[in-house]
Design a protein around this nucleic acid. Structure first.
Length: 205
DNA sequence: TTATAGATTGCCT
DNA sequence: GGCAATCTATAAT
């Protein structure tokens, strides 16, 4: 059961975003919706660094919008993109140092019905081949599936037992990681900072 | 004050 | 494959 998975410690996020990104693969993002537990296993992430990384929001310096990634580790940085979608990041490194990991795709684990409905699939056949992939195979999709928004979740501590948005470790071991350039960016586009679980059926694209 | 690009998605041809 | 949707930050009038 997902409720038995242990909360990830803050020290886990108090490290280089590239290392955190790699090790986040296989962990679980948990959303508590009242009595319901919505959860998905992380299968795709991207690391965003500090001032040297022109693709990172942190490169613009400290602003009201990106303040969370300059703050303490283990907190949710949620931003609104293209006037349409939210994206979920988790802050890394100590307070004062910028860095985060973008969660790009989840394998649905718990609360599948609720997540499908949140995505607008009222009667999705959860048993049909390929349908589970529609729920959270992209950064905007997974936020919609878990009900993540900036007003509700930005700055939220994801390693607090009282938080309704957490990162947990259920002991799942991944076999192999694939590394590629990040998706959808134009600056620093060649850096190999995207990490996926090799052969996962639940990644974006 | 106005313009433009952006860590995306889904619908159109 | 093309493109609209439409918020935010930054650059250009």
């Amino acid at each position: 059961m997902i409720r038995d998975a242990k909360l990830v410690r803050r020290a886990f996020f108090n490290r280089d975003p590239r290392l955190v990104a790699c090790e986040l693969l296989g962990k679980v993002v948990l959303r508590k919706e009242g009595r319901k537990m919505l959860a998905g296993r992380i299968v795709e992430v991207e690391a965003y660094l500090g001032a040297d990384d022109l693709a990172a929001h942190a490169a613009a310096g400290h602003t009201a919008r990106n303040a969370v990634i300059f703050g303490p580790p283990g907190h949710a940085y949620v931003y609104f993109i293209y006037g349409v979608h939210y994206c979920l990041n988790i802050s890394c490194l100590p307070k004062g140092d910028a860095g985060c990991v973008l969660i790009r795709a989840l394998e649905p684990v718990s609360g599948l019905r609720e997540m499908a409905e949140a995505r607008g699939f009222a009667d999705l056949d959860l048993a049909a081949a390929g349908n589970l992939r529609k729920i959270a195979s992209g950064p905007g999709k997974l936020c919609a599936a878990l009900g993540i928004t900036r007003p509700r979740d930005n700055g939220k501590d994801m390693v607090s037992p009282r938080s309704d948005l957490q990162v947990r470790d259920d002991g799942f071991c991944i076999e192999q990681i694939a590394v590629t350039p990040r998706i959808g960016i134009t600056k620093s586009a060649d850096l190999p900072l995207r990490f996926v679980i090799a052969n996962s059926h639940f990644v974006s694209r």
